[in-house]
Design a protein around this nucleic acid. Sequence first.
DNA 1: AATTTTCTGATTTACGTACATCAAATTTTC
DNA 2: GAAAATTTGATGTACGTAAATCAGAAAATT
Lengths: 366, 366
Amino acid sequence: MRPTVHDIAAAAGVSLATVDRVLNQRAGVRTVTRERVEQAIERIGYVRDVAAANLAKSRVYPFVFILPAGDNSFMRGLEAQVRAAMSRSAAERTSISVVTVPAFNAEALVAALDEARAKSPAGVAVVAIDSPDVIAAVDRLRADRIPVVTLVSDLAGSKRDHFAGVDNIAAGRTAASLMGRFLGGRSGPVAVLAGSMLVRDHRERLDGFQAVMTENFPGHVLLPVIEGQDDPAMVERLVGQVLASSPEIAGIYSLGAGNRGLIAALKRRAGGTPVCVIAHELTRHTRAALNDGLIDVVLNQDAGHEVRSAIRVLKAKADGVAVIGAQERIRLDIFLKDNLPFEEDSGTDTPLEQGRNQEPEQGAAD
Amino acid sequence: MRPTVHDIAAAAGVSLATVDRVLNQRAGVRTVTRERVEQAIERIGYVRDVAAANLAKSRVYPFVFILPAGDNSFMRGLEAQVRAAMSRSAAERTSISVVTVPAFNAEALVAALDEARAKSPAGVAVVAIDSPDVIAAVDRLRADRIPVVTLVSDLAGSKRDHFAGVDNIAAGRTAASLMGRFLGGRSGPVAVLAGSMLVRDHRERLDGFQAVMTENFPGHVLLPVIEGQDDPAMVERLVGQVLASSPEIAGIYSLGAGNRGLIAALKRRAGGTPVCVIAHELTRHTRAALNDGLIDVVLNQDAGHEVRSAIRVLKAKADGVAVIGAQERIRLDIFLKDNLPFEEDSGTDTPLEQGRNQEPEQGAAD
DNA sequence: AATTTTCTGATTTACGTACATCAAATTTTC
DNA sequence: GAAAATTTGATGTACGTAAATCAGAAAATT
C-alpha cells in the first residue's frame, strides 16, 4: 500500500498534526522536527494524494482565458475549445471564464490582463501581443503569484510560466524547406503573407522562413511581406494585386490567418504557372483547398491540445507540482492531402476537433 | 456548488441509501423509485465525483502491457515510456506490469494474452500481430469484460476497444507524396524496406505508399519489397545488395525498424546519385542521419503519447466513462531537419521524450 | 524559579462517495 | 388479514487529506 500521512507520523515519531504542519508549510514547527519529518517523507517515499487533498480542500481552479476577438477561424476554434473545456469544468474542478479583446490591440490586452488580475484567479492563459506594456501587465500578474501561460503566441522577456504553442521559428523553417524542395528546379519569386508583425508568432515564422530560403534556396527572390491583418477581405485584395503584378510567382507562404481571402484570390487566378502554396492552421477552408490542390501543405497547431495543455500546466503551477514535460510540447502538424485526419462536424466555421463528448468509436481514426 | 448525492436524495425525496443503490446499480429498488431518482439526477445535473469515488473505493487499475522483445529502438523506447508511466503509478492509481514476447511470433503473443487474462486485470494494452489466433485471444479477454487497447499495430476484426496508434495508411501515402515531390523531375526506381508483412502497421504503410506512388508518380519503378525483420544487421546486408545492384536508385522508403542498418549501408555507399530517404520513428540514429542529410524525412509516432493515451482510454473503459476523442488521436509527426524538437537525454538508445519528471523550464521548447 | 513564548500532540470535523448493517415501512403472497 | 418478502430509511465507517481547536510539553526569557 501507498504510504499516507499516518505512516509519516509513525516513521518520524511525531503526531499527525505536526506532519500536516510540515506538509502544508504552516508555522510552529522547530527546524529539527521539520527535518525529521522531511527525512521520514523521503525515506518512506510518501507522495501526497492530490485527489484526496483536493477533495478535502474542495478546491476549484478559477482560470481566465484572454483571446483575440474578430472573424478568424483559428481563434474562434480556439475559443470553441475553451468552451469545450468549460463543459468539463465540473469533472476537472475548474471554473473558466473567457474574455475576448480586439485583435492586435496591446492597450486593450493590458486592460484585460489587469482586470483578470483584480479577480485573483488561480491562473491566466493569454494569446499574447509582443509589447512592453503587455510584458509589464503579465509581470504584474506574476508578482501577485498568479500563474500565467501564453497561448499560441509567446511573450519573450516576460515572466510567464509556460508557453502553450508551437515552435514558430521551426514552423517557418519547415515551410521554407518544403517550399524549396517542392519547387525543385522551378524558378520564380516567393511571396510571404502575414497578419501583423506585432505578434511574435508571425514574426518568428517569418524569420525562420527567410533564414532557410536565403540559405538553402537563394534562387528564389522573396517579395516584400504582405500584411493582411488576418482579415479575409484585405488578404484577398492584397494577394490579388501581387498575383497580378508578379505573374511568374512560384510560391506563397501564408503564415497568418485570413486564408479564405487567399483561397478566393487563388481561385480567381486559375491558369498560369502553378504556385506552391503553404498555409497555416487547418480550418474547413484550408482543408477544402488542400483537397482541391489549391494549397499544397497546411501547417497546423492543435487548438484543443493547446487549451488542454494550458489548463494542465496552470493547475500544476497553481499546486506547485511538476508536469510531464513531453506531454506539454505542442507539435507542429504537417498536413498534406494524404494525411488529413477525418473531417469532424462540418457546417461550423471551426478548426479540427470540435469538442465532442462521446467517443465516436471509429477505430484507427479516433 | 456542484450537486452531490445528498442533493439527489433531497430532490427525489428518498434517502441517501436509495440514491446509492441506484447509482451503483445495486438490487432492492422498485422501478418507480429508481426512475424518480434517475429523473432527479438528470434534473439537477449530477455528475459523480470520480476522484472522491476512487478514494472511497481505494481503486487501483491493474494494467498489463504486452510488447515485442528484441533489439528495436522504437520498441525499447515504447517500453521506457511504459516504465515512465509505472513511476507515476502512485499518483495515477495504476499498477502496470510489462510483458515482452518474441517479435513477430503470434503463438507467443497468444500465450501472453491468455496469461494476462488469467490475472483478470483492469485492462490490457498490446502491440498486436495480425493473426486469427491473436484475434481470438483478444476476444477472449473482451468476453471476460477486460478492456483491450491495441498499441502501435492494430488488430482489425477483433473486438478491441480502441487503437492507440497512427493511421498507417495515411503514413504510407504521406511518405509517397513527399517522396514523389522531393524527387521532382528526377527518375529512377524506389525501394521499400519493411520489417515483416505479419504486422498490420507495416502492411498498411506499404499499401498507402504503393497506392500513391503508382497513382501520382508512375515514373518511378517500385523495386520488390525488402523484408529486414527489423533487424539492423539483416537490413544492412539487404540494403547493401540493393544499392549495389541498382546504382540508379532514386529513393528508399523504410517503413519498419532496423534503421541503424539502413544508415550504415547508406554511409558505406557515399558518392553516386543522391537518394531520397524517408524512414519511420525518430530515434537517436535517425535523428543523427536527418541532421547529416542521409535521411530526408522521418515520420514518427510519439511513443509517450501512445502509452499515456492507452492508459487514459483503458481507465475510461474500465470505469465506463467517455473519453475526449480528439485527445486520443495519435498524430503522425513529420520531421525534417528543420523542425526537429530539441534533443533530450542522449546516451541511451531511446526515442524522443524519455520519461522526465521535472519540468525543464526551457520555455517554448518545452 | 516563575513566567512567557514557542512548539507539539490529541482530537474532531469536513470533503463526496462507497459500502455495510439493521430496523422500519411497504408491498406481495397465501 | 396475517405472514413472508421486498423495499426503503437511518446510521456508521472508511478512503486520505486539510484545517481547526485546545491542552500540554518544551524551550526561551525574565
